[in-house]
Design a protein around this nucleic acid. Structure first.
Length: 437
RNA sequence: CGGGGCGUAGCGCAGUCUGGUAGCGCGCCAGUUUUGGGUACUGGAGGCCCCCGGUUCGAAUCCGGGCGCCCCGACCA
């Protein structure tokens, strides 16, 4: 993509309403625009990131055996009356009346709807287990939206729902999601730590919040320092393995939010205990028959009796992750995208657009990289070098490839790694080999 | 939902107390500068001063009523 033609309204100054760093950087980098309190438009650069995040979530869900579908944003109130939540949910639920005076709502979550779909289609235990997910916009009319996309009213969420014949099956479904979540966040370059959360009336150990560590996180967390150098991707078992040992190991390493942390009973010695800040990016829980019972989601069991199915639900804040990743990965100059979610891999900077030699070398590099499948944002604007460098640092692409007349005189271009600031001079061919290889 | 603040050019703000030609910086446009980490200079465009009503010869400014946005707290993916 040529920057001269790209819709990328970067800002030099920070809009007054943005208080936290990810919100400021997303506005300044031209990723989002606010349209109302807690509601945002995603501009091309931001939308690319959102889709990247969504795709990683999707791949890990599919790998874990979940099946994607898509439910609507608007739901009939009737379903929520069946579960008893229509009156309980309060003002956070956006209620709508259609032209026929029917009560509708903009879905804040989808337990009722998925239960309705399930109960109308599944009759026998032979069709279990099932795990269905979708990635869809939700609306919760928060009293006070803030922190940009980290706590918007409208947000993109991956939510899925598991259906099992009994508690043992539900436990296995839960463990599959536990593994999928650890893999998902690790792939995004995040250190996500599962922390035991309130399970409500069901009890047990089957509810975890996944919290990523970031200096600017909302809540205080404590964890065993063993978490810090745990390599999840290398230790993760296959989804078909017996997940119990893995689950036990990862839930036994201490981690707690400050609400649950009690220094008096903490099993971790003070020297091994890390105190940090965190952002919740995922939440999984098992809730048994909370919805299946009132809504009559039953199947015929092996002995012919009707059995109420055991359910769990699992959420990932996809749009929140865009902000959370920035909270976890930025510096004074701007965003530092982890490779897996970067909107482009390489920023190609032409220091002197209009100069025949610079234009030719850049054009060749751009064409060759594109041919090799490398996504490039080519800054071909007629701008000052300082402006180009500053914009590129702000946008935070993983690699910056700089071409200028001074370097070309010596036959070199400059390659910079955004995360480390490390720069090296090399030939255009060598740079191409490194980026495309 | 309690408490507080703000609304003036695309962005950041001054002007409001004490009513009298709508300003500054950045950005934008046209030039000069030919620049190696937000360069410098010259010229220019761009405003229902959030909305409605009132007071006044005259309102961005005073009064009344709305709306919007932000912050702190409580609450929450």
């Amino acid at each position: 993509m040529r920057l001269s033609a790209y819709f990328l309204p970067t800002l030099k100054e920070t809009p007054a309403e943005a208080q936290i760093v990810s919100h400021r950087l997303m506005l300044r980098a031209g990723m989002i625009r606010q349209t109302s309190a807690g509601i945002y438009a995603w501009l091309p650069l931001g939308y690319r990131v959102l889709r990247r995040i969504e795709q990683i979530v999707r791949e890990e869900q599919d790998a874990a055996g979940a099946q994607e579908l898509l439910m609507p944003t608007i739901q009939p109130a009737e379903l929520w009356r069946q579960s008893g939540r229509y009156d309980d949910y309060g003002k956070e639920m956006l209620r709508i009346t259609d032209r026929h005076d029917r009560d509708m709502l903009y879905g804040p979550t989808n337990e009722e709807m998925i239960t309705e779909i399930f109960r109308s289609a599944v009759r026998t235990y032979r069709d279990l287990p099932k795990n269905l997910y979708h990635i869809q916009w939700k609306f919760r009319d928060e009293v006070r939206p803030r922190f940009g996309v980290m706590r918007g009213r409208e947000f993109l969420m991956k939510d899925n729902y598991s259906f099992d014949l009994d508690a043992a099956g539900a436990r296995r479904s839960y463990q599959k999601m536990f593994l999928a979540y650890l893999r998902t966040f690790a792939r995004m370059g995040l250190k996500a730590i599962p922390m035991q959360a309130d399970t409500g009336p069901i009890g047990g150990d089957l509810s975890h919040e996944f919290i990523i560590l970031a200096e600017t996180g909302e809540s205080g967390v404590f964890c065993d320092k063993a978490w810090l150098d745990l390599d999840v991707l290398n230790q993760a078992p296959a989804h078909d393995d017996d997940l119990q040992p893995f689950f036990e190991r990862f839930t036994s390493i201490y981690a707690a939010t400050d609400e649950k942390h009690d220094p008096a009973t903490c099993p971790v010695p003070a020297d091994d205990l890390v105190s940090a800040r965190g952002i919740e990016v995922g939440h999984i829980f098992y809730f048994g028959t909370k919805y299946s019972a009132p809504m009559g989601a039953t199947v015929a069991g092996p002995d012919g009796e009707q059995v109420t199915v055991e359910m769990g639900s699992y959420g990932i804040g996809v749009s929140r992750l865009a902000g959370a990743i920035i909270e976890a990965s930025h510096d004074d100059a701007g965003i530092i995208w982890p490779d897996a979610v970067a909107p482009f891999k390489v920023g190609l900077i032409n220091l002197k657009s209009g100069d025949a030699e610079c234009d030719r070398v850049c054009g060749d590099l751009y064409a060759a990289l594109t041919r090799a499948g490398v996504e490039v944002l080519y800054d071909d604007r007629d701008e000052r070098p300082g402006v180009k460098f500053a914009d590129m640092d702000l946008i935070g692409l993983p690699w910056h490839l700089t071409v200028g007349p001074r370097g070309l005189k010596n036959g070199v271009v400059e390659l910079k790694r955004r995360a480390t600031g490390e720069r090296s001079e090399l030939s255009a061919d060598a740079a191409l080999a490194r980026l495309a290889g």
